[in-house]
Write a protein that binds this DNA or RNA. Structure first.
Lengths: 129, 129
DNA sequence: TTTGCTGCAAATTATTTGCATAGTA
DNA sequence: TACTATGCAAATAATTTGCAGCAAA
């Protein structure tokens, strides 16, 4: 019988306390006794499998994790400084039902984010390339 | 002066011919003379930097690439068989302007997909975990 | 001649896995 | 006792990088 161990519960609390998705490193920073990274990865896998958490990436090589309680949130991801802002306008539901019907698809989640340049990084936009 | 080399042009053609995003391996399959993977990665980086292509991931450890010509397309991604379907309802523009203004953010792209179970994999949904 | 593109091999990095140990019902 | 969680070290896999040779302006 699988259990929501102390570590898993702590990680879930951290995810629920954050408005934006966190990396594994950021989760570890927020844990007092620093568990092994593999334990964190395994905990996150468990939380995903039990539908308590969700992982996504913004095109970066590493993943971000968020709780379902905070979800559905949607994000602005800065391509330069990799900062994240959340916004809470969700119109996915409007088309979700139609998509499920038209495509014979069972939708469980969605991911929606914009990428670009945040306030600080706007001046650097034109410099790219 | 950087150039759209033959390889880069071929890769762009492949991306533009595909309705759904492709992995690096899938791109390589579609190229007659099989170039080195690192050359493909470098070409894709170039295409991204010049705003001709875009990469995303569906939570998988590997990335998918698509052309801007096909973009904005949006996807249904099956968590079980990893198949992709595209749909073309886009309502991002409606809120994009508002988000840019409210958050002092310059939006360049967006990524939007639903995950779940496709027609074939629906019977397996309940079996998970 | 200079600059940039490609192949090859090695390095890098996030993530996963095997195994031994510790914790818990 | 039996089962699950964790730490540690090693493995894996996608991607990146250094460098030499090649092609093009």
């Amino acid at each position: 019988m699988k259990k929501l161990s102390e570590l898993r519960q702590h990680i879930l609390n951290i995810l629920e306390a954050s408005e934006i998705p966190l990396t594994v490193e950021q989760i570890r920073e927020r844990l007092r006794l620093k568990p092994n990274l593999s334990s964190i990865y395994r905990s996150l896998l468990y939380l995903e499998e039990t539908g308590k958490a969700l992982s996504l990436s913004f095109g970066t090589p590493f993943r971000f994790y968020c709780s379902y309680r905070e979800h559905p949130a949607h994000y602005l991801f800065c391509k330069r400084c990799q900062s994240i802002q959340a916004f809470h306008v969700c119109f996915a539901q409007e088309i979700q039902d139609r998509l499920e019907l038209e495509n014979n698809f069972t939708i469980t989640d969605h991911v929606f984010y914009f990428t670009g340049y945040c306030q600080r990084c706007r001046p650097f936009e034109k410099i790219q390339l």
